[in-house]
Design a protein around this nucleic acid. Structure first.
Lengths: 198, 198
DNA sequence: CTTACTCGGTTGCTTTTTTAACCGAGTAAC
DNA sequence: GTTACTCGGTTAAAAAAGCAACCGAGTAAG
């Protein structure tokens, strides 16, 4: 269990971050469709093929931030402590996300995060790909929950709930309120939603 | 007459500078012999073979600054305007160097330059290589001045004069005086030396 | 006298990056 | 309806960089 911290790995990490940072900042400034991959490569001082070696598509330049959370629900269920119900584990996990203002919960009022959110959901192709990611998440969660149609239904309902909760939080933030102000309602919403889910 | 300003060239230039800067600053801090090429490579965040791809020897990490001036005297003579005597061209060139405080004239009191000077002439292996560079300069200047033993003698005397002038200036600066203060004497010395040379 | 360092410098092999050219789809000009 | 763009994305070849292992000389310990 060793991670190579050689020059190669370090420079790769830096290149990756340089590309992602250049891309997001250009997208936020001009909009996703008005920035070409050539512009990004130039800003990051790398060539176009190199850009595509780090990110398979233009959309991934934005969506890679969600990739870290890919399959998270399934993982939470699979790694839960013995004796804990799946829905309880997911509830606690979401609650912890709220407490630490994890952007995926929608409860984060940093200007960058809000602008990033607006970028993603204001760009159809990005929102579309995000929806497809959810389908994969659903499948993975279904597998973690068991077999058959019942597991699938519960997985679909769970992810739907998570999305509604996050969206509700985000809309409140977008309305001008602070994360700290919204937090109690967000917790209450989550309690209610997960209670109903059980 | 176009210079390729692609990514490749730009990054090469940056790597070159990063290595040279890291090396000189480490040398100034700890001394030439107490810094290994491994230390320099680590500080510049490159591998050892890469370092030697940019600089053939450890000494060149310091002396590359003089390489820019390699063969300068010969060039000045060869490119002089028609009707101008070789020694006159060299005299004017040196005088111009004094006016712009070119470090090779010794008339520069920037702390970095002084420290660098002390580094070079306080390290035997470096001073030695620098002397060998002078021999090449002499040959080139001799070729520019003509053929036969006479041209060689004039070349040798000329470079000797240049070195004496620079060393005199440097010693005055090392004594604590400023470049502006020393400048008139440096000009007078040069006038005298080149007058005698003709 | 061996053993085991360190240091300047090199060698071969692999990985990464650049370059220039290309593809297919869209789109504006004439 | 062709021409000539631009854009997302790919390909092949060549340059550059990383890595590990080595060489030969020096040097200190036992």
């Amino acid at each position: 269990m060793y991670e190579p911290t050689g020059l190669r790995a370090r420079k790769k990490q830096r290149t990756h971050d340089a590309i992602a940072d250049a891309a997001v900042s250009l997208f936020l400034e001009h909009g996703f469709d008005r920035v070409s991959v050539n512009d990004i490569a130039a800003a990051a001082e790398i060539s176009k093929p190199t850009l595509f070696r780090y990110f398979p598509t233009k959309e991934d330049l934005v969506l890679h931030r969600f990739k870290d959370h890919q399959g998270e629900a399934a993982r939470v269920v699979r790694d839960r402590a013995p004796g804990v119900e799946p829905m309880t584990a997911l509830h606690r996990h979401f609650r912890a996300g709220l407490d630490r203002r994890d952007p995926v919960t929608g409860l984060n009022d940093h200007p960058e995060v809000v602008a990033f959110h607006r970028l993603v959901f204001g760009t159809p192709s990005l929102a579309g790909r995000l929806a497809r990611y959810r389908l994969e998440d659903e499948e993975a969660l279904a597998d973690a929950l068991g077999e058959g149609i019942e597991a699938r239904l519960r997985a679909a309902q769970t992810l739907a709930v998570l999305q509604v909760l996050a969206r509700a939080n985000w809309q409140r933030i977008a309305g001008g309120r602070t994360a700290g102000d919204v937090h109690p309602e967000a917790v209450a919403d989550a309690d209610l939603a997960f209670g109903r889910l059980r």
